[in-house]
Design a protein around this nucleic acid. Structure first.
Lengths: 127, 127
DNA sequence: TAAAGTCAACGAATATTTTCGTAATGAATA
DNA sequence: TATTCATTACGAAAATATTCGTTGACTTTA
């Protein structure tokens, strides 16, 4: 079983791009990131090298441009992060977490429907 | 309106003690923390001094032992943290957040009932 | 008043995260 | 082959977070 270390902010931002785009070169990732954060090429490269060492991504050393790929699944990382926040800030209470999540961000009716569905599925699973 | 900077891990651990115990001295906080983390007295003191500077806590400079108190409300801090996580890891999707939260931690029937209640209240508020 | 104890202040040391300058490599091309 | 271009490698610098040793102030008590 793999350990899934908690990625830093910068690492998570890179993972998000890889999850969304699939395997990408440093340049491709950097171009996406420079829109929001202003991260230079070597900065992004450095992080991706660190992430290879940590096992967060794999690198395909293709002839010219190396192609990187997320090694940790999105959902697993999300679970790690939300479990961490639950413990650190909510004393483990999922209901409190949801309460504050809804308080900061008005969910659309579609989101609410989705939440109800998740809840229903979860209850069925528990029976 | 106050800004509510995201507390670091160590700062959040101290805030949790203050939220739970109410106004406390450094020693009292340190005694609670050394059970879980092994934080020395001066370490805790240093953080609490930093937190005064950042405006996270206030200090009552009583005759002998200074008494510290959380200045940021628990719920506001929780909202800041969950909003941050929503953006950084869930593309803003509250339903995804809940899904993964339920996936990591089996909610008790009471928790589920609580969650349903929160959802119902929230829907009523939206109408 | 002296000694011992308690606590805060200060600053240094360490660790971690983030950023980027510069050099090296290898391919394409003039 | 020499030059240019795109990319990676290396390592240092800067920023931030964490930890703690030491000093000094004040209180109590012997």
């Amino acid at each position: 079983m793999e350990k899934s270390p908690k990625p830093t902010d910068a690492e998570l931002a890179i993972l998000r791009v890889l999850w969304q785009r699939g395997p990408s070169t440093v340049k491709q990732v950097q171009q996406v990131l420079e829109a929001t954060k202003k991260a230079g090429y070597t900065t992004v490269l450095k992080f991706m090298q660190i992430m290879v060492e940590k096992g967060l991504v794999t690198r395909d050393e293709s002839p010219f441009a190396h192609v990187y790929q997320a090694r940790v699944p999105r959902e697993q990382t999300q679970r790690t992060l939300v479990a961490d926040l639950l413990e650190r800030a909510f004393e483990g209470s999922t209901s409190r977490l949801l309460l504050q999540a809804l308080a900061t961000k008005k969910a659309t009716p579609e989101e609410l429907a989705e939440i109800r569905k998740i809840l229903k599925n979860h209850e069925r699973g528990i029976q």
